[in-house]
C-alpha cells in the first residue's frame, strides 16, 4: 500500500522565503500524526502543501499516491483541510454550505444531512446563515464540510480552536472514527496534551524542516497524555 504522505527534500517558497526548506516526512495510511513546532516553523505551510494549495518548488512530494508537483487536482479531491479560516460562505445557510461541499465531490444530499446531524447542526441551526453562527458553531460547520467531502486525508490546523468542550470531544471522536475506517490525519496543534491523546506519532518542525520523525507506528495506541 502506498503511503498517505511521502515528502523527500521538499521545498516550498513563499515569495523567496523557503517556508518548507527540504522536508522529509512519511505518514502511513491510518496514522494520526501530530506536527509540533513554534510559530513560523512551517506547520501550516506543510498542511497546505499536503492539500495541494502550496506549490512544491523542488524535491519529491506524494499524497495518497499522487505526485503533488504534477497532479494537485487529484490530491485536492481526496483531502480535507481545516485551516485557520472556515472556508464557508457567510451568506449561505449551514445546509447550503454543506450541500455545496458535498455536491462538489459528487455526493448527494444525504451525505450533507448526515454531516449536519453528526456535528449537531441539524434542527434550527441548519437554516441559519453562517454569518449568524457563533465562532464555535462556525467551527463545527467547517468540520462538517470535511465529513461532507468524504476526505481520505484530514489536514487539521489548530482544529480545537474555537470549539467548546463538547465540540472538542466530538472532533476527537470523529478523528478516531476516521482513522478506524483507514483514513489518515495530520494535525498541527498547540494544545499538545489533547492532541497527543489522538496521535500515534509526533514530528517536530522548526525552520521549515522536520527535525524529528520517529518511525511509523501504525496500529499502536495513540500516545496518550504524557
Amino acid at each position: 500500500m502506498t503511503a498517505a504522505v511521502r515528502f523527500r527534500s521538499a521545498v516550498s517558497l513563499l515569495g523567496r522565503f523557503p517556508a518548507l526548506a527540504g522536508v522529509d516526512l512519511d505518514v502511513a495510511r491510518g496514522e494520526v500524526v501530530l506536527i509540533q513546532g513554534p510559530n513560523g516553523a512551517g506547520k501550516t505551510t506543510l498542511l497546505r502543501a499536503c492539500a495541494g494549495l502550496v506549490a512544491i518548488a523542488s524535491g519529491e512530494a506524494e499524497v495518497l499516491g499522487h505526485d503533488l508537483r504534477r497532479d494537485r487536482r487529484a490530491v485536492r479531491r481526496r483531502v480535507g483541510l481545516l485551516g485557520h479560516t472556515g472556508s464557508l460562505y457567510d451568506d449561505l445557510t449551514v445546509a447550503d454550505n454543506l450541500l455545496f461541499a458535498a455536491r462538489a465531490m459528487g455526493a448527494d444530499r444525504r451525505v450533507a444531512e448526515d454531516a449536519m446531524v453528526r456535528l449537531g447542526l441539524d434542527g434550527r441551526l441548519r437554516d441559519v446563515p453562517v454569518a449568524k453562527l457563533s465562532a464555535g458553531q462556525r467551527r463545527r460547520a467547517s468540520v462538517a464540510t470535511l465529513l461532507a467531502r468524504r476526505a481520505e486525508l484530514w489536514l487539521l490546523d489548530e482544529p480545537h480552536a474555537g470549539l467548546d468542550a463538547d465540540g472538542r470531544d466530538l472532533l476527537d471522536a470523529l478523528v478516531r472514527e476516521r482513522v478506524a475506517d483507514g483514513n489518515t490525519v495530520l494535525l498541527a496543534s498547540h494544545e499538545v496534551e489533547r492532541a497527543r491523546t489522538l496521535a500515534h506519532r509526533v514530528v517536530a518542525m522548526a525552520g521549515g524542516q522536520v527535525h524529528v520523525q520517529p518511525a511509523n507506528v501504525v496500529g499502536r495506541e495513540p500516545l496518550g497524555v504524557s
Binding site: R76, T85, S87, D90, A104, M105
Partner: peptide, 17 residues
C-alpha cells in the same frame, strides 16, 4: 469578494471542481 472571505478561494480550489 465572497470567495476571498473566510478562505473561500482555498475552498474553491479544494472543491475538486
Amino acid at each position: 469578494t465572497i470567495e476571498a472571505a473566510d478562505g473561500g478561494r482555498d475552498a474553491l480550489r479544494l472543491s475538486g471542481l
